[in-house]
Simulated scan of single mutants.
Amino acid sequence: MMTQPTAFETRLEDNAAKLVALLEELLSDGPLADEIQRPPRLMAAMRHGVLNGGKRLRPFLVIESAALFSGNPQAALRIGAALECVHCYSLVHDDLPAMDDDDVRRGKPTVHIAFDEATAILAGDSLLTLAFDIVAAPETDLSDRQKTELVLCLARAAGIGGMAGGQMFDLAAEQQAPDEQGIVTLQAMKTGALIRFACEAGAIVAGATADDRARLRLFGEKIGLAFQLADDLLDLTADPETMGKATGKDAARGKGTLPALHGQAWTEAKLTALIAEAANILGVYGDRAEILLETARFIANRRH
């Protein structure tokens, strides 16, 4: 007998459906103003890398963080779409033979398998560029100051000192396993930075105060670590069919993770502590923050 989805799960699915509809529109073959033409094969590869399922957690965090401060929901959706383009570009490139060399993503062939390596590289490049197009576009109903802040925050989260730099450290970890602090730094950059951005971006969209922005940023850092701990735990314990991708690869490559270092019991206790910290950070907002806290619990307790 199938269980009914919770109110949180329904909200997550509804927001994901809205996001996918927007992404389909943004990734259509018709060129925009100042675009000369959109190559059909490139667009097909981009759609393959983006419209392939997934929980859309990062955009959900943007939307719900903005909602906490009564921000413009349509603007939040567009910033969520921009963030999802950055996230999906990173997956397309991470899956390449020169990086993690994966053939399956979300239960489907990765972009370089479904198309070819050169097309996958261009699809990733185009998704990253499109993300900043979405933020800056006139259809995103925000002030120029808000757009500038979002561009800067997203660039810092995605670039040298964030996700891309984290991937560089991740590649180096195959040659020499980092110590515990090195693992924490790597994961804060590769995974945590975009989740941190998602939470802070919602506050920017809503024009929240500097204190509120800092609070949401800290919340994002806590749940970003929780996300990575849960992911690493699943890499040790879940099967590939459940995950929709290869598992056990970090251990096979000699990469250190906190669950591998400390064990499952420690990891589960750490996840519980992180959720308690996240709840404390958002305590000032009372019941208004319940959806964000549900998201934190969902991240920590996920099984795939």
Rank of each mutant, 00 (worst) to 15 (best):
L91H: 09
I183E: 03
A289K: 04
A177H: 04
A226S: 02
P259A: 12
D95E: 13
A188K: 00
A278H: 08
N301H: 03
F298G: 01
V20A: 14
L57H: 06
R303A: 11
L127M: 11
D101N: 15
A173D: 09
T272N: 10
A75L: 04
K249F: 08
R288A: 14
A289W: 01
Y285H: 15
D144R: 06
D235G: 02
D102M: 10
R302S: 13
L83D: 03
T119C: 09
L130K: 06
E221L: 07
R47W: 05
L150I: 02
L229H: 03
L154K: 01
L91Y: 09
V111N: 13
L236D: 13
D125A: 08
L274I: 08
K249I: 14
L26F: 01
A201C: 09
E13W: 04
G80F: 01
E25N: 09
G80S: 06
L154M: 15
G161C: 08
F132M: 05
V20R: 08
L77K: 03
R217M: 12
E64H: 14
R213L: 13
A136D: 00
F69R: 07
E200V: 07
V62W: 02
S143K: 10
I113E: 09
R106S: 12
F298M: 00
Q175H: 12
A269H: 12
P40H: 10
D144W: 03
A81V: 11
S65Q: 06
F219P: 02
N280A: 13
L258W: 05
T140Y: 10
T267A: 10
R288H: 15
C85V: 02
G162A: 04
L225I: 02
P31I: 07
P178D: 11
L225M: 14
R78Q: 12
A82Q: 09
L130V: 06
F227Q: 05
R297D: 06
G30S: 14
A98D: 02
I36Y: 10
I121H: 12
K55M: 09
G165P: 04
E9T: 03
G30H: 06
E180G: 05
I121C: 08
E35P: 04
Q167I: 00
